[in-house]
Write a protein that binds this DNA or RNA. Structure first.
Lengths: 334, 334
DNA sequence: TAAAGTATTGTTAGCGGTCACATTACCACA
DNA sequence: TGTGGTAATGTGACCGCTAACAATACTTTA
């Protein structure tokens, strides 16, 4: 026989008033007479009353929660996006409801339904491609939806992100400028962002009459994967003199593998990563990388959302954030 | 004038039945007559009906959501714990509600109240020390609560974790066995786990008549912090010949800094980390580290929780998971 | 063909707050 | 002492769904 948690009614009975009076006290003690204030507070503490949002959610369809839908939580990038989001939402009293879908559209559809079933007040999503059903849910939900990560998305939504393909093109060009020619792209996950980056990489290679080559996998990027890719690529592309990775971890893993093989970076092989995590700034040699404003992206998305929730509706807009090409030491052959 | 999302009533009217019939169809189509099935399904799709959990949460006080309360989300360790938790909860139809409190007890109290206000069916927390009010809420909540991370916690709760102090003691002893003497501990955050680890480190040092020395900060651990600590420690403890870090990132940051300084690892300085992240297995030299079962911890906690939710109550128990001392190459002086 | 199922659909109430609207208590002032 | 006004509290109703029960409709069987 487990005890149920106390309701306003329980507290009210203990004090000898109606629950309405207790409700008033909780929201604005001034509305309640002096002698009652103490009694109610005491009863509240005594019973350990904990507010219940369910009735409010039911009657107002407002949950004070924002749904955040990301492909993965273990990816450091998304962890930082989340931090940015929460930095803004928490002080405003909004709870973040996190869900992830492991890069699967069908799972994404389910997660959207789940989040909506909790009456989230807004949604932050991170892909532009959805199942038709998911698409419809997003349209019918009647709440603000923001898509983050890539600014070139064609969704009819508010979008906040960076131009991944431009960033990749620019970094590839930078590597070429530093004398690298046979640059292989290390890809993982093959999600929308990675495909954008690959496109940018290919453009830069083509523009310089160089041959693009891609090492890819559907699985997650990691340090060990970077090392494995390097082992393989050496036999597959013996002429390789540059590697551009979809993520810093791949790059660093590859770099370690080079050290083991006795290959010099950047002299024998130039290596560049993507995102500019903290480690890139501490390592030897400093990693060339595209520094992305992950946390800021989260912050801006959350701020935009709050504006929308508070009624400042506006047309779907695209905010493109700046990235930064950091040359480090790992591609400075010339 | 924003459109409200459709309710069961809306669907029912469209079909010409009562919402009860639609409700039945959704939960078990067999209960509805053949000709209606199609019509209802059609209306459902047509209006884009999305189930609403609020009424259920209100009437049954069951949300099918589990609250997870962690100090930080950006810490890789917790990201993996979350993955473990979700691996188990998602297939069971439970939504994870994440909250974090930045290592502050007061914030933790607030987060607990918030999560409970959403009627979570269970709670996973990660600290043993709480404010009195938080403590009371946890007791009164009437839902299963599991504390994870450290098995030596004295909470009167279900506990799943590792013995951090024993692990630190063992790793310190291992370093000593490999010929390191003046080992300094690099600490960050100063949370409960770190304090436990420091205790274990001190025990091992004392047992070998060696002097313990600690570099500490309240801020988060990072690669750059590890590098900074190394710089500082060289002048503060010129005799230093070993570093044991509360986290792999500190260790790796310190290691890079050693490389810059021309210090050999492990010959001049042995370095050990904690947790055994993927990078430790890819790097050169391989990092000595305590491998912790982070994901398993999350999985087990979630499984335990599900059992409790389904009524298999039991006395508070402690599950101590095994860690592993991995020597790698970074402490093998002897 | 009537009685007795069984299958299908409908009706009511309630979950726990809060809104909008009474109602009562209390006070000042003419 | 009565009147008007404000402060303090109370009274349904409602949010959307479903459990429990009620009422039909349709079959089957004697």
């Amino acid at each position: 026989m487990k005890k149920k948690r106390p309701t306003l009614q329980d507290v009210a009975e203990r004090v000898g008033v109606t629950k309405m009076t207790v409700s008033r006290f909780i929201r604005n003690p001034d509305q309640v007479s002096d002698p009652l204030r103490d009694k109610i507070q005491h009863a509240l503490d005594d019973l350990g009353y904990i507010p219940n949002r369910a009735p409010d959610i039911l009657s107002k369809s407002k949950s004070h929660a924002v749904g955040v839908l990301l492909p993965s939580l273990t990816n450091q990038v998304f962890a930082e996006v989340i931090r940015g989001i929460e930095t803004v939402l928490e002080p405003e009293g909004y709870q973040t409801m996190l869900a992830h879908f492991g890069y699967s559209q069908d799972l994404e559809e389910q997660r959207i339904a789940t989040l909506l079933s909790y009456n989230v007040d807004a949604l932050i999503i991170s892909e532009s491609q959805h199942t038709p059903k998911a698409q419809k849910m997003l349209e019918n939900a009647g709440i603000p939806v923001i898509e983050i990560m890539d600014s070139t998305s064609t969704s009819p939504l508010h979008i906040i992100g960076i131009n991944n393909s431009a960033a990749a093109r620019e970094m590839t060009q930078t590597m070429i400028d530093h004398g690298h020619r046979n640059i292989v792209y290390f890809a993982a996950r093959m999600d929308e962002r990675t495909l954008q980056k690959i496109a940018g990489y290919k453009q830069a290679m083509a523009a310089n009459n160089l041959t693009a080559a891609i090492k890819e996998t559907r699985s997650a990027s990691s340090f060990t994967l970077g090392a494995k890719f390097l082992e393989e690529v050496l036999s597959e592309y013996p002429d390789i003199d540059g590697i551009f990775c979809t993520n810093d971890d791949l790059a660093i893993g590859a770099l370690y593998a080079c050290q083991k093989k006795g290959l010099r970076v950047p002299e024998d092989i130039g290596i560049a990563g993507f995102h500019g995590h903290d480690i890139a700034r501490a390592m030897v040699p400093l990693l060339a990388t595209v520094v992305t404003p992950r946390e800021e992206m989260g912050r801006l998305a959350a701020q935009q959302l709050l504006k929308n929730i508070h009624g400042e509706a506006r047309h779907a807009s695209v905010i493109e954030l700046a990235y930064e090409i950091e040359c480090g030491e790992s591609i400075k052959k010339i």
